[in-house]
Design a protein around this nucleic acid. Structure first.
Lengths: 241, 241
DNA sequence: CCAAAAGTGTTTCGAGTACACCCATGA
DNA sequence: TCATGGGTGTACTCGAAACACTTTTGG
């Protein structure tokens, strides 16, 4: 039957200057979980991850990155499967099977919060919602650890790769982009230096438009040049050697 | 039985200014393979990788990094298992099982070539030797791709992390360290700039000794300050943000 | 007219790069 | 004494960081 291989997706979203993660709440339990699923023996692992993302968010063609394989033997506590049976999450005949070691591949994705319309829970969970990274609920298994690892890798990769595409509207102001970086990095950045550095990456285009409506000076709107953006991800933004 | 999960280790060694990979030659075949093995359901994946490294090289406490999970459906060509049976690598009853999709976790290690005394082959292979990265033999499955991916990630990580520990003797000259970097990067570096930059990382200690015996000025010998070295790996050598 | 955000330029500092000469050693 | 590699310093350029005032907008 199952190959004993599952995937877990850490789906990051950004909203109101806060970094969010999409989580499922398990039926009849207080625990939450990452969206994921088992990988069929016939399917390629990476494409299954794409499917999970699609099932939960309705989004395709999103930056999705495999970042780690979690394969420790102590990923769940004794009695874990028992609890799942007791709370009706899985049928009793699967209890033993669920008590063995699981190997899970972690993926993370960056998606635009507003484009995800009413994320849908699956059969084993009764809600699917965005949770603030700074205020995560109790999570099953080692999902907390998986999220933290994804976050750590995301921050490290920020040094070599741009982010923003799929995390912001198609057109955005420089301040919005900066707010994204500040949120992910969890600290303030200098406005002037940020603008200069970001423009120097040569991945932005000025749309020529302005956003009006705020009680302030109307900002220019930019968009990503997707070709250059993807090239930057491929080649890295800098290399020391 | 098997969980359908295997590991493959790309073990890099460095010798005479060449980057080597430790490979096994399959019994009765012209194909070579990466050292690896299946992961028992009871075992943690990372520690199995440590075991593979130990079985082949006799080394423990070596930098070993999980770098990717290979989970495509087309990892081997049709007839692959059949060939393995025909050439006596596996018994016939396993043919069907060997024909399904395999998921393999890639690890890479950096070890000192000279410390590996006569690497030992396993039951399915008749030799285990170092092969030059620039002249790889034909490899089974997607092992060539795995090696190239490991190499690519190694080069990228060089921008954030030092290398050298376990790849060089305990004490080494600056030129030897530079030769290592030049080999991995596959290009020449400026001697003066290399020294300055490397010293600025603050991970080296001057042993106070010199190496004599060459027909030249005798070079200072350095060693890594392991505490600082590991801290540099943890924290990264630089951060742009 | 005022509050709030947008836009802009300069200086300072450190790291990266290019480059050339003298020194020590063993053969 | 000579060939070979070891050791060192300086000038230039560029990116990073610190820092303050003026402009635009809607309320």
């Amino acid at each position: 039957m199952h190959p004993g291989l599952s995937i877990d997706c850490v789906i990051f979203g950004f909203h109101e200057s806060e970094l969010k993660v999409l989580l499922l709440k398990l039926k009849n339990q207080k625990l939450w979980s990452l969206p994921g699923g088992f990988v069929d023996r016939q399917k390629a692992v990476d494409s299954e991850a794409v499917e999970v993302l699609f099932r939960r968010t309705g989004l395709r063609d999103i930056f999705l990155r495999q970042f780690y394989l979690f394969g420790d033997t102590d990923r769940h506590l004794p009695g874990h499967a028992n609890k799942l049976v007791a709370t009706d999450v899985i049928p009793p005949e699967l209890e033993n099977w669920f008590d063995q070691r699981f190997v899970s591949v972690g993926y993370y994705a960056l998606v635009e919060y507003s484009k995800v319309q009413a994320p849908r829970p699956d059969f084993s969970s009764d809600s699917c919602t965005w949770k603030n990274m700074k205020d995560l609920p109790d999570l099953m298994l080692d999902h907390e650890k998986i999220i933290q690892k994804a976050y750590q890798i995301l921050k490290r990769e920020l040094n070599d790769q741009p982010i923003g595409l799929n995390l912001l509207p198609d057109e955005f102001s420089m301040s919005e982009l900066q707010a994204l970086y500040e949120t992910v990095l969890d600290r303030k950045l200098d406005r002037r230096n940020f603008r200069r550095k970001m423009l120097s990456y040569d991945i932005l285009e000025d749309t020529g438009k302005r956003r009006t409506g705020g009680a302030h000076k109307s900002p220019r709107l930019y968009r990503f040049n997707e070709e250059k953006y993807h090239k930057a991800i491929e080649d890295g933004l800098r290399s020391l050697w």
